[in-house]
Design a protein around this nucleic acid. Structure first.
Lengths: 133, 133
DNA sequence: ACCGGTAATGGGAACCGTTATCAGCTAGCA
DNA sequence: TGCTAGCTGATAACGGTTCCCATTACCGGT
């Protein structure tokens, strides 16, 4: 059975309050800064559980796991700003069918696909342009 | 200038001799087992260089970087057996245009995409079926 | 309200893949 | 052949994540 603790709630709340992908360590720091006494290991466990239950999306970038609260409940992909982390959720049925048919065409079963798009969002492109001479 | 050393050649040969994605550590172990005295750091450096030069593809799985010699020189994606690692290279122009147009539609510039499909290849599906009662 | 068991917690140590360090070596060029 | 910048490799350091385990506290049953 999965117990409901204030730590789990705190992690979920902190995740829901953000619009971008965050690492476990960042979330832990934020929670501590907000006065919580939650432990780092607990944040890792809570995030892993949330991802397993489908309450959060996860992806790996630069060798660390990032998490984000799901806005849309179903399967979807992400368009992520590589500068500020702003994320747009994308539904793309074409990709689903493409992945399934491609796997089947090569005799692969039970296909899963990783599809994420990174880019520089409008505001960050302006900032970056002035920083890069 | 980039020098040609027997270590780099050994890494490239070992990579070319495989049909699957391998980690730096696995490749290092294989080279040592074959009698080479190559160092682990050198394997990491050689693989990073090969990937940078476009001589090898890399992807991250389970928190580690995996490498594979490119059969097709241009941009492509992979269909990977999650059991035995057998890999099929896939050209998918539809994905390229989809990623570009999706990014543009949301005001994102300079898009990059990560698209990999994992599945269980025919032979492994048979083996796995007998192992799972 | 009170137990009892049991999952959850948290601090630190361990773990693992990767990268930095640096003295010695060597490929490539004149 | 000699020079020298780039390469090598053993080891230390590093950063993110997981494990360990004594303690805590959730929750169903009474």
């Amino acid at each position: 059975m999965r117990r409901r603790t204030w730590q789990r709630a705190a992690v979920q709340d902190a995740l829901t309050g953000r619009y971008d992908f965050v690492s476990a360590q960042t979330l832990h720091s934020q929670l501590r800064a907000d006065g919580s006494s939650i432990g780092l290991a607990t944040v890792y466990r809570a995030l892993a559980d949330l991802a397993e239950e489908g309450e959060a999306d996860s992806l790996r970038a630069d060798g660390e796991s990032l998490y984000r609260a799901c806005a849309s409940p179903g399967h979807h992909h992400h368009l992520i700003c590589r500068s500020c982390g702003r994320t747009v959720e994308i539904q793309a049925d074409d990709i689903e069918t493409w992945a399934a048919s491609t796997a089947a065409a090569h005799g692969f079963r039970d296909p899963q696909h990783i599809v994420d798009v990174f880019g520089t969002c409008g505001p960050c492109a302006l900032v970056g342009a002035s920083e890069t001479p």
